[in-house]
């Protein structure tokens, strides 16, 4: 069934979300919009964003406060990463450099807040604690369907 879509992506079913692409839209409209679209779609630059067919992004299913706080760190961390790649090639762009600074400050304070409750994110900086560092789950471990 899904293979049929490959050569068929301009039909009305796609536009109205009647096949597998509906997921991208379903999760866009729920109440978890505290994560920015730029992060979820994987591109900080509006003019460079190229969606696949009619799919923009899928909103992750955040289940608790820990996941929510960590996803905000991922969001800021992603912005910093994407700005850095751009600044590598455009080191004189002050507008993006300012945006970088803002996100970096935000990232630092989000990390500090998270680490004081849930333990260290890094073993060479921030609030390291040997017991908490080695404690599971690690990022690749699913804990009853939760990401960490």
């Amino acid at each position: 069934m899904y293979f049929e879509n490959i050569n068929n992506f301009n039909d009305l079913n796609d536009l109205f979300g009647l096949n597998n692409y509906q997921y991208a839209y379903n999760y866009q409209n729920n109440n978890q919009s505290y994560l920015s679209e730029k992060f979820l779609r994987g591109n900080m630059f509006d003019n460079e964003f190229i969606p696949y067919k009619n799919m923009k992004y899928v909103m992750p299913k955040i289940k608790n406060e820990k996941e929510q706080k960590l996803s905000k760190i991922m969001e800021s961390s992603f912005a910093v990463i994407d700005y850095v790649l751009y600044l590598d090639i455009h080191p004189d762009d002050h507008v993006i450099f300012e945006k970088y600074n803002t996100e970096k400050e935000k990232l630092n304070s989000l990390k500090k807040e998270y680490e004081s409750v849930y333990g260290p994110l890094c073993n060479t900086e921030g609030q390291y604690n040997s017991y908490q560092w080695l404690s599971s789950p690690w990022p690749w471990e699913s804990d009853g369907g939760m990401y960490v």
Partner: peptide
């Protein structure tokens, strides 16, 4: 992405696909 209808899989794949777009541009 074409091969699956599981949104848990499609979400990260859409993100990773977009990163290819950005890296290509750089």
């Amino acid at each position: 992405i074409n091969i699956t209808d599981d949104e848990d899989i499609i979400g990260p794949l859409l993100f990773l696909r977009q990163r290819e777009v950005v890296h290509f541009n750089r």
